[in-house]
Nucleic acid binder design. Structure first.
Lengths: 146, 146
DNA sequence: GGCATATAGTTGACTTTGTCAACTATATTT
DNA sequence: AAATATAGTTGACAAAGTCAACTATATGCC
């Protein structure tokens, strides 16, 4: 990759992470931290995940995660179900309350995205999202063989 | 924006921030935190910035920034120059050492980007970076009237 | 079977990062 | 010249994240 391209990439990163950072900051005037919201997302997304599964999905220290999950359990957001075949592992499931809480965050994030792009026309939205999907594909290809 | 587009946007955000998060994490086995590195970047970029300028550029609490700058000064990375016309403000300048330290971080980031994309062809790199620039333009347009 | 090694998750102790409000000093407004 | 605003500092604190030791169970291998 050429030096100017690297500069553009890094400049884009600063720009993009600043924006996402502001969005996250705003959402997170909710009762959940960014990482907690992400864990709720993953729990909603994949049923019966274990703590180890989550670590594979989000890059978090296992001790830290353990405490977050304990907090979630205490707040009745999740249920822990002991695995039968392996007594070390527990499957995690969002409770009804947990799902409701997740839905709230999810709706708020949707709303935020909608607001963010409210000045773009339909065709601009199309172009934007198409480009994001393409970037993702290209980057996945780039990363694959690491 | 359509619901599927919002989903794609948010999914892209998770993907992209995960990657950038990993890159940052790696760089930051250096002696500087992410925010410190960003402040060094801004100081290198704009000469004679004040603390307030930096707050305008990076979204940081002024107390927190004050301490970081004090730390930089102690480490001889910056010089503080009292403004003549307004005795409340101090202009900040990277020292030679500060510039050297910044260069190290900067080179490491460049290298990281280069490695990240080493499996992409020249034309793929072109497409990728072009799309990033386009996304930035579109998003800036979207945000402009907030 | 029985020992060595690996994995899942928990806990304690700790560091780093970030927040908030009060405060000093100077500048600006009225 | 009094009131208000701004730049930056400081103290006290809270939130986020790290690291290693530990328990319990599982797996590989002789």
């Amino acid at each position: 990759m050429k030096p100017e391209q690297i500069q553009e990439f890094r400049s884009f990163n600063r720009f993009y992470t600043d924006i996402v950072g502001l969005l996250d900051k705003h959402i997170l005037n909710s009762k959940y931290s960014l990482i907690e919201a992400r864990i709720l997302f993953e729990l909603n997304n994949g049923k019966g995940l274990t703590a180890s599964d989550i670590i594979g999905l989000v890059d978090i220290d296992k001790g830290y995660l353990s405490r977050i999950l304990k907090k979630f359990e205490k707040a009745r957001l999740i249920k822990k179900v002991d695995s039968l075949k392996d007594k070390r592992v527990v499957a995690l499931q969002l409770s009804e309350l947990g799902k409701k809480e997740f839905e709230k965050l999810d709706k708020a994030s949707d709303k935020q995205a909608e607001d963010l792009f409210k000045n773009l026309s339909e065709s601009e939205c199309n172009r934007l999202i198409t480009k994001m999907a393409e970037i993702r594909l290209l980057m996945k290809k780039g990363i694959k063989y690491e």
